[in-house]
Design a protein around this nucleic acid. Structure first.
Length: 491
DNA sequence: ATGCATGAGGT
DNA sequence: CCTCATGCATA
Protein backbone atom coordinates (compact mmCIF):
# COMPACT_ATOMS: atom_id res chain seq x y z
CA UNK A 1 0.00 0.00 0.00
CA UNK A 2 2.91 2.27 -0.24
CA UNK A 3 1.89 3.85 -3.39
CA UNK A 4 4.16 6.63 -2.68
CA UNK A 5 4.87 7.30 -6.25
CA UNK A 6 2.78 9.21 -8.62
CA UNK A 7 -0.61 10.24 -7.55
CA UNK A 8 -3.44 9.22 -9.70
CA UNK A 9 -3.45 11.48 -12.65
CA UNK A 10 0.22 11.72 -12.46
CA UNK A 11 0.30 8.49 -14.29
CA UNK A 12 1.76 10.82 -16.72
CA UNK A 13 2.05 9.03 -19.86
CA UNK A 14 5.39 9.35 -21.30
CA UNK A 15 3.89 8.97 -24.62
CA UNK A 16 5.28 12.04 -26.11
CA UNK A 17 8.18 10.33 -27.56
CA UNK A 18 7.63 6.73 -27.13
CA UNK A 19 6.28 5.40 -30.27
CA UNK A 20 7.66 1.99 -29.94
CA UNK A 21 6.63 -0.45 -32.36
CA UNK A 22 6.00 -3.83 -31.19
CA UNK A 23 6.05 -4.92 -34.68
CA UNK A 24 9.60 -4.02 -35.10
CA UNK A 25 10.38 -5.53 -31.87
CA UNK A 26 8.52 -8.55 -32.82
CA UNK A 27 10.40 -8.95 -35.96
CA UNK A 28 13.75 -8.68 -34.45
CA UNK A 29 12.71 -11.19 -31.95
CA UNK A 30 11.63 -13.61 -34.53
CA UNK A 31 14.56 -13.39 -36.69
CA UNK A 32 16.58 -14.02 -33.75
CA UNK A 33 15.44 -17.48 -33.42
CA UNK A 34 13.04 -20.22 -33.52
CA UNK A 35 9.42 -20.07 -33.80
CA UNK A 36 7.37 -21.23 -31.05
CA UNK A 37 4.87 -23.78 -31.81
CA UNK A 38 1.40 -22.88 -31.46
CA UNK A 39 -1.55 -24.93 -31.85
CA UNK A 40 -4.58 -23.51 -33.17
CA UNK A 41 -7.31 -24.46 -35.35
CA UNK A 42 -6.11 -26.85 -37.84
CA UNK A 43 -8.10 -25.28 -40.46
CA UNK A 44 -8.19 -27.00 -43.68
CA UNK A 45 -8.30 -24.51 -46.43
CA UNK A 46 -9.82 -26.59 -49.04
CA UNK A 47 -12.06 -28.47 -46.83
CA UNK A 48 -14.64 -29.48 -49.33
CA UNK A 49 -17.89 -29.13 -47.68
CA UNK A 50 -16.98 -29.65 -44.15
CA UNK A 51 -20.56 -29.62 -43.32
CA UNK A 52 -21.98 -32.48 -41.59
CA UNK A 53 -25.24 -31.22 -40.53
CA UNK A 54 -25.85 -27.95 -42.00
CA UNK A 55 -28.49 -25.61 -41.04
CA UNK A 56 -28.50 -22.26 -42.72
CA UNK A 57 -29.72 -20.35 -39.88
CA UNK A 58 -31.58 -21.22 -36.90
CA UNK A 59 -34.74 -19.98 -35.61
CA UNK A 60 -35.34 -21.67 -32.44
CA UNK A 61 -38.83 -21.27 -31.28
CA UNK A 62 -38.70 -20.37 -27.73
CA UNK A 63 -35.20 -20.76 -26.89
CA UNK A 64 -33.08 -17.86 -26.22
CA UNK A 65 -29.98 -18.23 -28.12
CA UNK A 66 -27.22 -18.06 -25.73
CA UNK A 67 -25.26 -16.20 -28.19
CA UNK A 68 -21.85 -15.81 -26.97
CA UNK A 69 -20.76 -14.45 -30.15
CA UNK A 70 -17.38 -15.80 -29.63
CA UNK A 71 -16.51 -19.19 -30.64
CA UNK A 72 -19.23 -21.60 -31.20
CA UNK A 73 -18.08 -25.00 -30.59
CA UNK A 74 -16.49 -26.24 -33.64
CA UNK A 75 -15.87 -29.66 -32.52
CA UNK A 76 -17.91 -32.14 -30.79
CA UNK A 77 -16.90 -35.13 -28.93
CA UNK A 78 -19.17 -37.35 -27.09
CA UNK A 79 -17.99 -40.09 -24.98
CA UNK A 80 -19.75 -42.50 -22.87
CA UNK A 81 -18.34 -42.82 -19.48
CA UNK A 82 -15.25 -41.29 -18.30
CA UNK A 83 -13.30 -43.37 -15.98
CA UNK A 84 -13.18 -40.95 -13.26
CA UNK A 85 -16.66 -40.94 -12.19
CA UNK A 86 -18.06 -43.61 -10.11
CA UNK A 87 -17.16 -44.50 -6.65
CA UNK A 88 -14.43 -46.78 -7.73
CA UNK A 89 -12.33 -43.96 -8.81
CA UNK A 90 -10.05 -42.59 -6.26
CA UNK A 91 -9.44 -39.42 -8.02
CA UNK A 92 -12.71 -38.64 -9.58
CA UNK A 93 -12.61 -35.12 -8.51
CA UNK A 94 -11.67 -32.42 -10.84
CA UNK A 95 -13.08 -33.74 -13.99
CA UNK A 96 -16.45 -34.15 -12.48
CA UNK A 97 -18.58 -31.81 -14.31
CA UNK A 98 -21.80 -31.23 -12.71
CA UNK A 99 -23.58 -28.50 -14.40
CA UNK A 100 -27.13 -29.39 -13.87
CA UNK A 101 -27.75 -26.18 -12.12
CA UNK A 102 -25.82 -23.95 -14.34
CA UNK A 103 -27.29 -25.33 -17.46
CA UNK A 104 -30.77 -24.92 -16.35
CA UNK A 105 -30.34 -21.25 -16.51
CA UNK A 106 -29.65 -21.67 -20.14
CA UNK A 107 -26.66 -19.56 -19.73
CA UNK A 108 -25.02 -22.86 -19.88
CA UNK A 109 -22.08 -22.50 -17.72
CA UNK A 110 -19.73 -25.29 -18.14
CA UNK A 111 -16.56 -26.21 -16.57
CA UNK A 112 -13.38 -26.74 -18.23
CA UNK A 113 -12.39 -29.63 -16.17
CA UNK A 114 -12.69 -27.93 -12.95
CA UNK A 115 -12.34 -24.42 -13.99
CA UNK A 116 -15.12 -22.22 -15.07
CA UNK A 117 -14.96 -21.41 -18.65
CA UNK A 118 -16.84 -20.19 -21.56
CA UNK A 119 -19.63 -22.50 -22.14
CA UNK A 120 -20.45 -24.38 -25.23
CA UNK A 121 -23.80 -23.62 -26.52
CA UNK A 122 -26.52 -26.08 -26.32
CA UNK A 123 -30.00 -25.37 -27.26
CA UNK A 124 -33.13 -27.06 -26.58
CA UNK A 125 -35.69 -27.18 -29.22
CA UNK A 126 -38.92 -28.95 -29.49
CA UNK A 127 -40.77 -29.92 -32.52
CA UNK A 128 -44.44 -30.26 -32.10
CA UNK A 129 -44.60 -32.78 -34.80
CA UNK A 130 -43.62 -35.71 -32.82
CA UNK A 131 -43.75 -38.56 -35.20
CA UNK A 132 -40.55 -37.68 -36.84
CA UNK A 133 -38.09 -39.35 -34.63
CA UNK A 134 -37.78 -43.01 -35.14
CA UNK A 135 -41.23 -43.53 -33.91
CA UNK A 136 -40.07 -44.09 -30.42
CA UNK A 137 -42.23 -41.38 -29.17
CA UNK A 138 -45.76 -42.05 -29.92
CA UNK A 139 -46.88 -40.05 -27.02
CA UNK A 140 -48.02 -36.58 -27.23
CA UNK A 141 -44.69 -35.51 -26.14
CA UNK A 142 -43.23 -33.06 -28.46
CA UNK A 143 -39.88 -34.22 -29.44
CA UNK A 144 -37.35 -32.17 -27.74
CA UNK A 145 -33.93 -32.05 -28.95
CA UNK A 146 -30.70 -30.75 -27.84
CA UNK A 147 -29.08 -28.81 -30.50
CA UNK A 148 -25.41 -28.50 -30.48
CA UNK A 149 -23.79 -26.04 -32.73
CA UNK A 150 -21.00 -27.76 -34.38
CA UNK A 151 -19.30 -25.32 -36.50
CA UNK A 152 -18.45 -21.81 -37.00
CA UNK A 153 -16.82 -19.72 -39.50
CA UNK A 154 -18.17 -19.67 -42.93
CA UNK A 155 -21.57 -18.38 -42.24
CA UNK A 156 -23.28 -21.66 -41.99
CA UNK A 157 -24.37 -22.95 -38.73
CA UNK A 158 -24.13 -26.57 -38.18
CA UNK A 159 -25.95 -28.50 -35.61
CA UNK A 160 -26.27 -31.92 -34.39
CA UNK A 161 -29.34 -32.69 -32.47
CA UNK A 162 -30.04 -35.38 -30.07
CA UNK A 163 -33.48 -36.22 -28.85
CA UNK A 164 -33.69 -35.30 -25.29
CA UNK A 165 -35.20 -38.57 -24.43
CA UNK A 166 -32.07 -40.15 -25.58
CA UNK A 167 -29.85 -37.85 -23.84
CA UNK A 168 -31.49 -37.88 -20.53
CA UNK A 169 -30.82 -41.18 -19.09
CA UNK A 170 -31.21 -40.66 -15.45
CA UNK A 171 -27.74 -40.62 -14.17
CA UNK A 172 -26.23 -42.21 -17.11
CA UNK A 173 -22.87 -40.79 -17.59
CA UNK A 174 -22.71 -39.51 -20.99
CA UNK A 175 -20.24 -36.88 -21.43
CA UNK A 176 -20.07 -34.28 -24.03
CA UNK A 177 -16.81 -32.77 -24.81
CA UNK A 178 -16.50 -29.97 -27.16
CA UNK A 179 -13.87 -27.62 -28.13
CA UNK A 180 -14.33 -24.06 -28.93
CA UNK A 181 -12.38 -22.12 -31.38
CA UNK A 182 -9.63 -21.54 -29.03
CA UNK A 183 -9.12 -25.22 -28.89
CA UNK A 184 -10.21 -25.44 -25.36
CA UNK A 185 -12.06 -28.45 -24.33
CA UNK A 186 -15.27 -28.17 -22.51
CA UNK A 187 -16.91 -31.03 -20.89
CA UNK A 188 -20.33 -31.56 -19.63
CA UNK A 189 -22.65 -34.36 -18.89
CA UNK A 190 -25.51 -34.99 -21.14
CA UNK A 191 -27.58 -36.29 -18.38
CA UNK A 192 -27.62 -32.98 -16.74
CA UNK A 193 -29.23 -31.53 -19.71
CA UNK A 194 -32.34 -33.13 -18.57
CA UNK A 195 -32.91 -30.33 -16.24
CA UNK A 196 -33.28 -28.22 -19.25
CA UNK A 197 -36.18 -30.05 -20.58
CA UNK A 198 -38.34 -29.47 -17.63
CA UNK A 199 -38.60 -25.75 -17.63
CA UNK A 200 -38.60 -25.32 -21.30
CA UNK A 201 -40.65 -27.61 -23.25
CA UNK A 202 -42.41 -29.21 -20.66
CA UNK A 203 -45.95 -29.80 -20.94
CA UNK A 204 -44.90 -33.12 -19.80
CA UNK A 205 -44.59 -34.35 -16.34
CA UNK A 206 -41.40 -35.69 -15.09
CA UNK A 207 -42.96 -39.04 -14.95
CA UNK A 208 -43.42 -39.88 -18.49
CA UNK A 209 -40.13 -38.45 -19.30
CA UNK A 210 -38.25 -40.48 -16.86
CA UNK A 211 -40.21 -43.39 -17.98
CA UNK A 212 -39.26 -43.14 -21.52
CA UNK A 213 -35.78 -42.35 -20.61
CA UNK A 214 -35.74 -45.43 -18.60
CA UNK A 215 -36.80 -47.49 -21.48
CA UNK A 216 -34.16 -45.93 -23.49
CA UNK A 217 -31.50 -46.55 -21.01
CA UNK A 218 -30.18 -49.31 -23.07
CA UNK A 219 -29.81 -47.23 -26.07
CA UNK A 220 -28.07 -44.66 -24.15
CA UNK A 221 -25.60 -47.05 -22.89
CA UNK A 222 -24.70 -47.84 -26.37
CA UNK A 223 -24.67 -44.37 -27.58
CA UNK A 224 -21.87 -43.89 -29.95
CA UNK A 225 -18.87 -42.00 -29.21
CA UNK A 226 -18.56 -39.08 -31.36
CA UNK A 227 -15.28 -37.80 -32.19
CA UNK A 228 -14.48 -34.84 -34.11
CA UNK A 229 -11.67 -34.44 -36.33
CA UNK A 230 -9.47 -31.53 -36.11
CA UNK A 231 -10.77 -29.55 -38.93
CA UNK A 232 -13.41 -27.18 -37.92
CA UNK A 233 -16.91 -28.31 -37.78
CA UNK A 234 -16.34 -31.79 -38.77
CA UNK A 235 -17.76 -34.48 -36.78
CA UNK A 236 -16.58 -37.94 -36.65
CA UNK A 237 -18.55 -40.56 -34.97
CA UNK A 238 -16.89 -43.59 -33.66
CA UNK A 239 -18.89 -46.46 -32.57
CA UNK A 240 -17.44 -49.80 -32.49
CA UNK A 241 -20.40 -51.99 -32.85
CA UNK A 242 -18.96 -54.11 -30.19
CA UNK A 243 -19.39 -51.42 -27.73
CA UNK A 244 -22.99 -51.37 -28.50
CA UNK A 245 -23.28 -55.05 -28.07
CA UNK A 246 -21.90 -54.99 -24.63
CA UNK A 247 -24.51 -55.72 -22.05
CA UNK A 248 -24.05 -52.47 -20.42
CA UNK A 249 -27.72 -52.22 -20.08
CA UNK A 250 -27.58 -54.42 -17.09
CA UNK A 251 -25.95 -51.71 -15.19
CA UNK A 252 -28.10 -51.09 -12.23
CA UNK A 253 -28.11 -47.53 -11.43
CA UNK A 254 -25.04 -45.56 -11.14
CA UNK A 255 -22.12 -47.15 -12.70
CA UNK A 256 -22.29 -47.42 -16.35
CA UNK A 257 -18.71 -46.51 -16.30
CA UNK A 258 -18.02 -49.57 -14.36
CA UNK A 259 -20.04 -51.61 -16.65
CA UNK A 260 -17.73 -50.80 -19.40
CA UNK A 261 -14.52 -51.27 -17.65
CA UNK A 262 -15.70 -54.35 -15.94
CA UNK A 263 -16.94 -55.93 -19.02
CA UNK A 264 -13.49 -55.78 -20.27
CA UNK A 265 -12.84 -58.54 -17.88
CA UNK A 266 -15.72 -60.83 -18.10
CA UNK A 267 -16.68 -60.24 -21.62
CA UNK A 268 -14.96 -59.54 -24.77
CA UNK A 269 -12.02 -57.58 -23.74
CA UNK A 270 -11.15 -57.37 -27.29
CA UNK A 271 -14.20 -55.35 -27.80
CA UNK A 272 -13.26 -52.79 -25.34
CA UNK A 273 -9.76 -52.84 -26.46
CA UNK A 274 -10.83 -52.14 -29.90
CA UNK A 275 -12.93 -49.34 -28.78
CA UNK A 276 -9.98 -47.85 -27.17
CA UNK A 277 -7.87 -48.14 -30.15
CA UNK A 278 -10.43 -46.63 -32.26
CA UNK A 279 -10.47 -43.83 -29.90
CA UNK A 280 -6.85 -43.36 -30.36
CA UNK A 281 -6.99 -43.44 -34.03
CA UNK A 282 -9.80 -41.15 -34.51
CA UNK A 283 -9.17 -41.25 -38.13
CA UNK A 284 -10.20 -44.71 -38.78
CA UNK A 285 -12.23 -44.36 -41.84
CA UNK A 286 -13.95 -47.63 -41.83
CA UNK A 287 -15.39 -47.03 -38.49
CA UNK A 288 -16.48 -43.64 -39.34
CA UNK A 289 -18.43 -44.93 -42.22
CA UNK A 290 -20.25 -47.57 -40.36
CA UNK A 291 -21.01 -45.16 -37.71
CA UNK A 292 -22.61 -42.46 -39.56
CA UNK A 293 -25.60 -44.54 -40.11
CA UNK A 294 -25.71 -45.40 -36.53
CA UNK A 295 -25.63 -41.88 -35.62
CA UNK A 296 -28.50 -41.28 -37.88
CA UNK A 297 -30.52 -43.86 -36.11
CA UNK A 298 -29.85 -42.92 -32.61
CA UNK A 299 -29.55 -39.27 -32.84
CA UNK A 300 -31.80 -37.60 -35.19
CA UNK A 301 -29.95 -35.22 -37.28
CA UNK A 302 -31.65 -32.05 -37.93
CA UNK A 303 -31.04 -29.98 -40.84
CA UNK A 304 -33.06 -27.25 -42.17
CA UNK A 305 -33.54 -28.37 -45.63
CA UNK A 306 -31.13 -30.55 -47.15
CA UNK A 307 -29.86 -32.52 -44.79
CA UNK A 308 -27.94 -35.37 -44.99
CA UNK A 309 -24.78 -36.54 -44.02
CA UNK A 310 -22.29 -35.87 -46.45
CA UNK A 311 -19.92 -38.35 -47.33
CA UNK A 312 -17.80 -39.62 -44.71
CA UNK A 313 -14.61 -39.12 -46.45
CA UNK A 314 -15.23 -35.49 -46.20
CA UNK A 315 -15.39 -35.80 -42.52
CA UNK A 316 -12.01 -37.20 -42.30
CA UNK A 317 -9.39 -34.81 -41.31
CA UNK A 318 -6.44 -35.92 -43.16
CA UNK A 319 -8.05 -36.33 -46.47
CA UNK A 320 -8.40 -32.68 -46.45
CA UNK A 321 -5.50 -30.55 -45.71
CA UNK A 322 -3.17 -31.50 -48.40
CA UNK A 323 -2.21 -27.96 -48.83
CA UNK A 324 -0.74 -28.20 -45.45
CA UNK A 325 2.80 -28.16 -46.43
CA UNK A 326 4.25 -29.67 -43.39
CA UNK A 327 5.60 -26.86 -41.41
CA UNK A 328 9.02 -27.63 -40.33
CA UNK A 329 11.20 -25.71 -38.03
CA UNK A 330 14.59 -26.68 -36.96
CA UNK A 331 14.07 -30.02 -38.51
CA UNK A 332 11.06 -30.60 -36.40
CA UNK A 333 7.77 -31.41 -37.91
CA UNK A 334 5.42 -29.03 -36.29
CA UNK A 335 2.35 -30.50 -37.80
CA UNK A 336 3.08 -33.82 -36.40
CA UNK A 337 3.60 -32.44 -32.97
CA UNK A 338 0.58 -30.31 -33.31
CA UNK A 339 -1.50 -33.28 -34.18
CA UNK A 340 -0.12 -35.28 -31.37
CA UNK A 341 -0.80 -32.53 -28.91
CA UNK A 342 -4.36 -32.44 -30.03
CA UNK A 343 -4.78 -36.15 -29.81
CA UNK A 344 -3.10 -36.24 -26.51
CA UNK A 345 -5.61 -33.91 -25.05
CA UNK A 346 -8.45 -35.94 -26.38
CA UNK A 347 -7.02 -39.10 -25.07
CA UNK A 348 -6.32 -37.57 -21.72
CA UNK A 349 -9.87 -36.39 -21.43
CA UNK A 350 -11.13 -39.72 -22.57
CA UNK A 351 -9.44 -41.23 -19.62
CA UNK A 352 -10.99 -38.60 -17.49
CA UNK A 353 -7.70 -37.23 -16.38
CA UNK A 354 -6.70 -33.72 -15.64
CA UNK A 355 -3.43 -32.18 -16.53
CA UNK A 356 -2.54 -32.24 -12.91
CA UNK A 357 -3.20 -35.90 -12.63
CA UNK A 358 -1.12 -36.66 -15.63
CA UNK A 359 1.64 -34.57 -14.23
CA UNK A 360 1.56 -36.42 -10.97
CA UNK A 361 1.39 -39.75 -12.63
CA UNK A 362 4.28 -38.76 -14.74
CA UNK A 363 6.40 -37.96 -11.77
CA UNK A 364 5.63 -41.33 -10.36
CA UNK A 365 6.87 -43.27 -13.29
CA UNK A 366 10.37 -43.53 -14.52
CA UNK A 367 11.75 -41.14 -16.95
CA UNK A 368 11.37 -37.42 -17.20
CA UNK A 369 8.53 -35.91 -15.30
CA UNK A 370 6.57 -32.88 -16.23
CA UNK A 371 4.33 -30.64 -14.29
CA UNK A 372 0.82 -29.60 -14.94
CA UNK A 373 2.18 -26.41 -16.36
CA UNK A 374 4.30 -28.28 -18.78
CA UNK A 375 1.42 -30.37 -19.90
CA UNK A 376 -0.76 -27.40 -20.26
CA UNK A 377 1.82 -25.67 -22.35
CA UNK A 378 2.38 -28.69 -24.40
CA UNK A 379 -1.25 -29.10 -25.20
CA UNK A 380 -1.45 -25.51 -26.12
CA UNK A 381 1.87 -25.80 -27.78
CA UNK A 382 2.93 -22.79 -25.93
CA UNK A 383 6.48 -23.93 -26.07
CA UNK A 384 9.30 -24.09 -28.48
CA UNK A 385 9.40 -26.86 -31.01
CA UNK A 386 12.47 -28.07 -29.34
CA UNK A 387 10.92 -28.70 -26.01
CA UNK A 388 7.80 -29.99 -27.59
CA UNK A 389 9.79 -32.59 -29.34
CA UNK A 390 11.45 -33.44 -26.13
CA UNK A 391 8.26 -33.85 -24.19
CA UNK A 392 6.29 -35.60 -26.82
CA UNK A 393 7.84 -39.05 -26.53
CA UNK A 394 7.45 -38.93 -22.81
CA UNK A 395 3.80 -38.17 -23.00
CA UNK A 396 3.36 -40.61 -25.77
CA UNK A 397 4.81 -43.42 -23.83
CA UNK A 398 2.95 -42.56 -20.72
CA UNK A 399 -0.34 -42.26 -22.49
CA UNK A 400 0.08 -45.60 -24.12
CA UNK A 401 0.66 -47.16 -20.77
CA UNK A 402 -2.19 -45.37 -19.14
CA UNK A 403 -4.56 -46.52 -21.80
CA UNK A 404 -3.27 -49.98 -21.47
CA UNK A 405 -3.93 -50.02 -17.80
CA UNK A 406 -7.27 -48.52 -18.35
CA UNK A 407 -8.21 -51.29 -20.67
CA UNK A 408 -7.25 -53.74 -18.04
CA UNK A 409 -9.49 -52.10 -15.61
CA UNK A 410 -6.80 -50.53 -13.59
CA UNK A 411 -8.02 -47.45 -11.98
CA UNK A 412 -4.84 -46.16 -10.55
CA UNK A 413 -3.61 -44.43 -13.53
CA UNK A 414 -2.35 -41.72 -11.39
CA UNK A 415 -0.75 -43.13 -8.35
CA UNK A 416 2.16 -41.07 -7.46
CA UNK A 417 4.64 -40.56 -4.80
CA UNK A 418 4.56 -37.39 -2.90
CA UNK A 419 7.61 -35.30 -3.33
CA UNK A 420 9.50 -33.28 -0.83
CA UNK A 421 8.87 -29.60 -0.55
CA UNK A 422 12.51 -29.02 -1.27
CA UNK A 423 13.90 -25.59 -0.96
CA UNK A 424 11.72 -22.68 -0.26
CA UNK A 425 11.12 -20.64 -3.22
CA UNK A 426 11.02 -16.94 -3.19
CA UNK A 427 7.57 -15.70 -2.88
CA UNK A 428 6.05 -14.64 -6.09
CA UNK A 429 6.23 -10.95 -6.50
CA UNK A 430 3.07 -9.25 -7.34
CA UNK A 431 3.53 -6.03 -9.12
CA UNK A 432 1.15 -3.23 -8.62
CA UNK A 433 -0.76 -2.12 -11.65
CA UNK A 434 1.17 1.10 -11.58
CA UNK A 435 4.45 -0.67 -11.54
CA UNK A 436 3.36 -2.88 -14.35
CA UNK A 437 2.28 0.05 -16.33
CA UNK A 438 5.60 1.65 -16.05
CA UNK A 439 7.46 -1.52 -16.72
CA UNK A 440 5.42 -2.19 -19.76
CA UNK A 441 5.91 1.25 -21.04
CA UNK A 442 9.54 0.84 -20.60
CA UNK A 443 9.52 -2.50 -22.21
CA UNK A 444 7.83 -1.20 -25.26
CA UNK A 445 10.61 1.21 -25.70
CA UNK A 446 13.40 -1.05 -24.80
CA UNK A 447 13.24 -4.73 -24.10
CA UNK A 448 16.79 -4.83 -22.94
CA UNK A 449 17.40 -2.23 -20.32
CA UNK A 450 20.94 -1.81 -19.28
CA UNK A 451 22.05 -2.64 -15.84
CA UNK A 452 21.88 0.92 -14.79
CA UNK A 453 18.47 1.37 -16.20
CA UNK A 454 17.22 -1.60 -14.34
CA UNK A 455 18.69 -0.36 -11.15
CA UNK A 456 16.99 2.88 -11.75
CA UNK A 457 13.71 1.23 -12.36
CA UNK A 458 14.01 -0.95 -9.35
CA UNK A 459 14.62 2.05 -7.17
CA UNK A 460 11.90 4.02 -8.65
CA UNK A 461 9.42 1.27 -8.27
CA UNK A 462 10.84 -0.02 -5.11
CA UNK A 463 11.34 -3.58 -6.09
CA UNK A 464 14.36 -5.74 -5.95
CA UNK A 465 16.61 -5.14 -8.83
CA UNK A 466 16.72 -8.84 -9.46
CA UNK A 467 13.00 -8.95 -9.57
CA UNK A 468 13.03 -6.31 -12.21
CA UNK A 469 15.63 -8.11 -14.20
CA UNK A 470 13.67 -11.30 -14.09
CA UNK A 471 10.60 -9.46 -15.09
CA UNK A 472 12.25 -8.36 -18.25
CA UNK A 473 13.54 -11.80 -18.93
CA UNK A 474 10.15 -13.29 -18.56
CA UNK A 475 8.59 -10.56 -20.52
CA UNK A 476 10.87 -11.19 -23.41
CA UNK A 477 10.19 -14.83 -23.24
CA UNK A 478 6.49 -14.27 -23.20
CA UNK A 479 6.68 -11.87 -26.05
CA UNK A 480 8.30 -14.45 -28.16
CA UNK A 481 5.51 -16.82 -27.58
CA UNK A 482 2.92 -14.41 -28.67
CA UNK A 483 4.80 -13.45 -31.69
CA UNK A 484 5.22 -16.95 -32.75
CA UNK A 485 1.64 -17.65 -32.29
CA UNK A 486 0.67 -14.81 -34.46
CA UNK A 487 3.13 -15.75 -37.04
CA UNK A 488 1.95 -19.26 -37.15
CA UNK A 489 -1.67 -18.53 -37.03
CA UNK A 490 -1.65 -16.15 -39.84
CA UNK A 491 0.58 -18.25 -41.89
C1' DA B 1 -3.95 -20.75 -17.65
C1' DT B 2 -0.24 -17.74 -16.56
C1' DG B 3 2.99 -14.85 -14.00
C1' DC B 4 7.12 -14.87 -11.61
C1' DA B 5 11.22 -17.81 -10.08
C1' DT B 6 15.00 -20.95 -10.70
C1' DG B 7 18.86 -23.02 -12.73
C1' DA B 8 21.51 -24.61 -16.55
C1' DG B 9 24.20 -23.29 -20.38
C1' DG B 10 26.13 -19.58 -23.02
C1' DT B 11 28.39 -14.98 -24.04
C1' DC C 1 23.74 -10.71 -18.07
C1' DC C 2 21.18 -13.45 -21.42
C1' DT C 3 18.21 -17.18 -23.16
C1' DC C 4 15.61 -21.32 -22.35
C1' DA C 5 13.10 -24.83 -20.30
C1' DT C 6 10.41 -25.63 -16.43
C1' DG C 7 8.10 -25.47 -12.18
C1' DC C 8 5.57 -23.40 -8.23
C1' DA C 9 2.03 -20.53 -6.95
C1' DT C 10 -1.80 -18.00 -8.00
C1' DA C 11 -5.50 -15.29 -10.33
Amino acid sequence: MDTDSNDGSATDVVDGESKPDLVKLAQSAIIKQDVMLSATSTQSPLAPVSSVFTMPSVSLPHVSMASTGLGLADQLFMSVPSVADTATTPSATESKTDIAGALSSLSSQTHLLGQPQVAPHFFLASQPSASASTGQTSHTVPVQQILIPVSTGNGTQQFISIPVSLATGGNQQIQLITTNNGGQFLATNLSSLQSLTQPLGSNRDAHSISQSSHALANHIASLPQLLTTASGGQLLAVTPQMLASLPIATSQSSSSANAVSLSSHSLSHSAVATAQQVLQHTLSQAVAASVTSKLAQQAHITSSTNGLPPNVSQLLPHTVGNSTESTTVDGINLDEIKEFARQFKIRRLSLGLTQTQVGQALSATEGPAYSQSAICRFEKLDITPKSAQKIKPVLERWMAEAEERYKNGVQNLTDFIGSEPSKKRKRRTSFTPQALELLNQYFERNTHPTGTEMTELSERLNYDREVIRVWFCNKRQALKNTIKKLKQDGQ
